[in-house]
Design a protein around this nucleic acid. Sequence first.
DNA 1: CTCCAACCTGGAGCGCGCTCCAGGTCAAGC
DNA 2: GCTTGACCTGGAGCGCGCTCCAGGTTGGAG
Lengths: 128, 128
Amino acid sequence: MSGYAPSEAARRSGFSLDTLRYYEKIGLLADVERTAGGQRVFTDDDLGWLVLFRCLRDTGMPIAQMRRYAQLARDGEHTTDERHELLCHHAARVEEQMRLLQRQYDHLREKIRFYERLPGTAPGSETG
Amino acid sequence: MSGYAPSEAARRSGFSLDTLRYYEKIGLLADVERTAGGQRVFTDDDLGWLVLFRCLRDTGMPIAQMRRYAQLARDGEHTTDERHELLCHHAARVEEQMRLLQRQYDHLREKIRFYERLPGTAPGSETG
DNA sequence: CTCCAACCTGGAGCGCGCTCCAGGTCAAGC
DNA sequence: GCTTGACCTGGAGCGCGCTCCAGGTTGGAG
């Protein structure tokens, strides 16, 4: 169950070894266990955090904010309200991001349709 | 109609003055007109390009690729197939991007629901 | 004619999120 | 015991897309 070598944690999380070390260095992952010889051992819990980080990164949250969230979680139960709020604000930004992406995707599709309606073509828009 | 001062072009396109100059410098915008004294004058056509660049940037196209597209357009009518293909490939990447974003947004929403079902809270997931 | 805000240039600098490197240590298999 | 590949550290470097700066020019308003 618990106890993954760095390479295994990397494989499972999709982050590179360097990124895992980096995340620990900057305090995103804290208290990663070590063998007697000093090599990292990742737990299922660490993997859970990594899945969350992947979600937040993929939705465009800056690392500084993920760090803040992680710190709040470490600070204990009394920070749940603030964590909830942080995630809600982020979700709102993601929604805006999705709307923008959809809108620009529609523009792009229209541009593509322009090319697909070009068999003979009378010259017009230079922005071809 | 045609003929906008740099500040006006910036206002209309949403790009900064520095970015407009940068885009010209790297060859995204080519042949921007100048006054006798050397100051830029942007045309409606330039503005059209900027709208397109905004679309492509917002959907995550790297600048190198936008440059390639712009170059193809400058090369003439015989590049329409390649331009079409380029946009189609990009559109496919955008679709993938939208799916990922939606998936991770759903995860995020679930996480938020977790906090909203926490009135008393039995401790469980550390990834709080 | 004067003023001053807007503009020009070339080039350095920045913020982000990693990524790579050198030089050394650890540990599983033979 | 030895080999070898995975791992360790601190710190430098990178790629992207701007952004800022110094020092000088332009051009419309008054």
